[in-house]
C-alpha cells in the first residue's frame, strides 16, 4: 500500500539549519548534513532543504552542501530556494538532488514550470505555494511569504499542475510557526482537485496534527521543521502513532 510521507524540512541559511516563526526571528538548528542523515536513519521518508538566503554568493555553498547531503543520505531529497533557471536546476540535480522546488520564480514566470518539466521530467519539479488568507480569500505569497501577489491559491494550484509540476508543496503562512495545526480545509480542497501529490506544510505542533492533515486534509505528505529539529516529536514515534491510527506508514 502506498504510504503517507513524513518529510522534515531543513531551512538553510549560510550553510546552517535555522528555524524561526513566520519566516522571521531565526534560530540556529544545527548542521544540515548531520541532521539530514539522522532524519533518514530515524525513518524520514524524504528530506526538503530550503535555502532561505539564496543570494548569488551562496549558490556555490548550496551546491556543495547538496553534494555532501547526497553522499550521506539514502532517501529522496528536494532542494529549494532561489531557483530561477534551467542552469540552477541542472547544477542541483547533478550535485545529487532528486527534486527541486520552485516558488517565486514560477509566479514571476509560469512558463518556467513547463520548461523545467520538459527538460528534467515532472517527477523532479515541485512547485511550492506559500498562501495566506487576506480578506477572506487565499492568496499566493512570494519572497518567503513577505509579498502578496495578485494570484489566488486554488486556481494557481490547478495551473501549476497543468503546466507540469510533479508535486505541490503547500505552505499556509497563517499556520506556519503557530503549532496550531495544518490548514486542513484548504489542503483538502486542493488535494481532491489535483491528480498530483500535495505536501502540506505549516502549523504542525503535535502528532494529532499529522493525523488530521492525512484524514481531514487529504494530504499525501506532511512536512515540518521545528518540531523535529528541537526534538519535540521524534519521527519514529510519529510514524508509529500514525500507523496505530490506521494511516499507512513505512515503518
Amino acid at each position: 500500500m502506498l504510504t503517507k510521507r513524513i518529510i522534515p524540512c531543513l531551512d538553510i541559511k549560510d550553510g546552517r539549519t535555522v528555524k524561526g516563526t513566520n519566516f522571521v526571528d531565526l534560530r540556529d538548528a544545527g548542521d544540515p548534513v548531520e541532521l539530514g542523515a539522522l532524519y533518514a536513519q530515524e525513518g524520514a521518508d524524504e528530506l526538503v532543504f530550503l535555502d532561505i538566503t539564496a543570494t548569488v554568493d551562496d549558490r556555490k555553498t548550496l551546491v556543495n552542501l547538496v553534494r555532501e547531503v547526497a553522499r550521506h543520505v539514502n532517501i529522496p531529497f528536494t532542494v529549494g530556494g532561489g531557483i530561477s533557471s534551467i542552469q540552477d536546476v541542472s547544477a542541483l540535480l547533478n550535485a545529487g538532488a532528486d527534486k527541486v522546488s520552485i516558488n517565486s520564480s514560477a509566479v514571476r514566470n509560469p512558463d518556467l514550470i513547463d520548461e523545467l518539466a520538459l527538460q528534467f521530467g515532472s517527477q523532479c519539479i515541485i512547485v511550492a505555494i506559500d498562501t495566506r488568507l487576506v480578506d477572506g480569500k487565499d492568496w499566493v505569497h512570494t519572497h518567503g511569504g513577505r509579498k502578496i501577489t495578485e494570484i489566488q491559491t486554488i486556481p494557481w494550484a490547478k495551473e501549476v499542475e497543468n503546466r507540469g509540476a510533479g508535486e505541490i508543496l503547500l505552505t499556509s503562512m497563517d499556520a506556519d510557526g503557530t503549532k496550531a495545526g495544518f490548514a486542513n480545509a484548504l489542503t483538502a480542497h486542493i488535494s481532491t482537485h489535483a491528480s498530483i501529490p500535495i505536501i502540506a506544510s505549516g502549523g504542525a505542533g503535535s502528532m494529532e496534527h499529522f493525523y488530521e492533515v492525512f484524514t481531514d486534509g487529504k494530504a499525501d505528505a506532511g512536512l515540518a521543521a521545528s518540531i523535529f529539529h528541537f526534538k519535540e516529536i521524534s519521527i519514529g514515534d510519529l510514524k508509529n502513532y500514525l500507523s496505530s491510527k490506521g494511516i499507512p506508514m513505512r515503518i
Binding site: 500500500m1 502506498l2 504510504t3 503517507k4 510521507r5 521518508d45 515532472s122 517527477q123 510533479g166 508535486e167 489535483a194 491528480s195 498530483i196 501529490p197 499525501d220 505528505a221 513505512r250
Partner: peptide, 10 residues
C-alpha cells in the same frame, strides 16, 4: 487514485 504513483510502497 493519483497518477503518477509517487512515494513509498511495499
Amino acid at each position: 487514485l493519483k497518477i503518477p504513483h509517487v512515494g513509498w510502497n511495499s
